[in-house]
Design a protein around this nucleic acid. Structure first.
Lengths: 227, 227, 227, 227
DNA sequence: AATGAATGAGCATTCATTCAT
DNA sequence: CATGAATGAATGCTCATTCAT
């Protein structure tokens, strides 16, 4: 189940940076902390990630963490907020300029394949997101949990939008009905594809996305009034 | 109609209950510990669950934990082993007496709806399983990770079996081909349904299972040589 | 204001006892911890005493402190409880066999001089007690504060008893009235004597006690109905 | 009636307010810090008061504290110095225009009742003073401890002055002898009254002062050569 | 077989303080 | 002059584990 491609924790090769020439590098170290936290927490989980580990990862003094973030929970919240931001930006980018014509299947595939690329690029964030969805590890970080919920809600909205666009040819009302009916299943397909991706079964995400697209289109066509 | 051979479930060995038949309390408290650990770890995650929490939860002395299990990691391994055992038993039970006739869709639906019931009844185990799939929280418990892998492998085998059974009417070779092609997607649907179930979207698992069944059948039919 | 006679913190001359032959010396280390805490806290105050200091003082591992006591606050509570016990025992001892006859002044002096001896022997406890009376340093240790209040209440009762005994010759009712009227002043005299004792003015406690006795008798006689 | 010379109060040097006349905010925030520190430290003790607490209390930036004061210890020293100044000013004010005639008791009562009012008004300062007398919490602030000693020495001188004034009618030498003999007891009465006041026994300070006055006069008369 | 006592390493967090601007 | 950013050392406490009985 251990995926070789998973990011390894950087070894502590810089045991004494010490020579911090300037103390006016706040913004930079804040981001360094966020990056390290996102990386490590997505691998070890929230509870499994100790502040000391992040200290070793970054080389920054422990107090820097509490200078920039209120607490470990606050750090998680910031990690999630930034991750969500990046995820939505990537989604918006990916779905810019959708194909104008084509069959529903072609359009659906286009959307989901692009989405699959986002999944691959946002692995870290999505892994942490799913762990937070599944466990209550981060009960102390309600703000982070709120972000999780927001991301899922927005994600569902996104899925609805994709399905509606794919079926746009069938008329607005019909497309809306299909989208509303299938968005949950689409989300589940998305989640499942990511889990499979994580469980290192070696199957490319694109394949899941293609199958999900085709499946959604089949289900959708069965729902169309004309049928 | 050819009924595909039911896959033989590999035994997930419980690490030899230490044979303390003499003391009746021993057996009972071992099980109490396993239950509490399964319950709490599935909620808080492995790293997020401390031995002290389990001590408080069970009321048993801390040393009892180390009497029955080698370590926290060993406890997790036992929890996973027992959970896997129960999961497979439930699956075997659920799929006893499949319908003999009917369309592929009907048969697929029957299988997956029964599977959905198992999902609902084994929520605790599956939640912990998925957290372990997603995070490296339990890197110290390789035995548990092995169980995770086993469960997923067996799960995929199971999924293959269900699809093959549904398509049995198309002939053994065709059914095999379809099953091999769609098993990963089926697994992903299963995972995704569980994630949605956990994220408390309020949609009944049965609906996901029905849609997954229909989607799989559509995809399968598209793969059949005759088409 | 620094009194030379004040107990010095024992230097950490035993840096590595390590060779704790037995781990069954619980009771003993509990008492060691209590003693060290009483000693150091009475010098540095509650907030000014860190657990690490006590660790260094005792040579015991930090976890031993949390094995025996719930928290730093709990340790303070135990220190105060044991100190109060010892204080009351000493008072009871000191006032066993009071003189049968003599003038009120002689009797009052006898009582207070004996009390002065107790003060000198219980310096540590009383110092900590007074610091807790004066500051809210130990707001987190409400149990300790309850002990403080108890000790002061019992102390006042004691003072009443001494005055009543001194004036017993004037008749029970008169003695009671005098005792009730003067107990608060007696307490204040006691407190003040202890503060002076602590502020290292070099004046023996016995002198304060004699003057307090004489002052109380004068005030008491002025209250007697016959006058 | 011979009025004893009022003791000259030694100045308790405020550490030269750094002469920032230019910036008006500076002066004000320095005083704000002093006030907050006096208030909080008198409640929580020195060790129990963190700089962060004072930052939150004042709303001023942390660096302002180090701009105006050298260190936490330096801040305590300044707090004590200013408190001592205020205390002596209040004492001087309170004892302006003592009664010319009357019995020693009347005069003693007048002095001590006025002193009692000062106690009530300077509660904050005296509480911190007593905590510093009792504990070694502020070992790092020797300057503050010096102020403590000064205040107590001056206080004793004051007490001597009051007793001498009360007994002035008995002749200078006799009054001096009585004052020297009873000043420590007077101080102790003062301390004790304050402790009782703090321990919230609900007894008005005036009553302690009256009884202390009467007690002192009784003791003093017993010492007069004529008796 | 079962357990209360004990422990060293590590936890998240706060401390008083410094420094560049 | 005034301050926001930064920091190393220490804080109170919990961790998983061991061991003698």
């Amino acid at each position: 189940m251990v995926r070789a491609a998973r990011p390894r924790l950087r070894q502590v090769e810089t045991p004494a940076p010490k020579a911090h020439t300037s103390n006016r590098r706040g913004r930079r170290s804040r981001q360094e902390i966020l990056d390290a936290a996102a990386r490590v927490m997505s691998v070890r989980g929230y509870a499994g990630t100790s502040m000391s580990t992040l200290v070793k990862e970054t080389g920054l003094p422990k107090s820097a963490f509490y200078h920039h973030f209120e607490s470990k929970a606050g750090l998680l919240s910031a990690v999630m907020a930034q991750g969500a931001q990046g995820f939505f930006d990537a989604m918006r980018d990916a779905h810019r300029d959708p194909p104008e014509g084509g069959t529903p299947r072609e359009r659906m595939r286009w959307y989901l394949l692009r989405t699959g690329e986002v999944i691959e690029n946002r692995e870290e964030f999505l892994r942490l997101l799913l762990v937070l969805v599944m466990s209550h590890e981060a009960a102390e970080a309600p703000e982070a949990l709120r972000t999780v919920r927001t991301v899922r809600d927005e994600g569902r909205t996104y899925m609805r939008h994709m399905i509606r666009s794919a079926f746009a040819g069938a008329g607005g009302a019909a497309a809306d009905a299909v989208a509303d009916a299938l968005a949950p299943f689409g989300m589940a397909g998305f989640d499942g594809a990511f889990v499979s991706f994580q469980s290192a079964d070696g199957i490319p995400i694109a394949r899941f996305m293609t199958e999900l697209a085709d499946g959604l289109v089949s289900l959708g066509e069965a729902l169309l009034p004309g049928r």
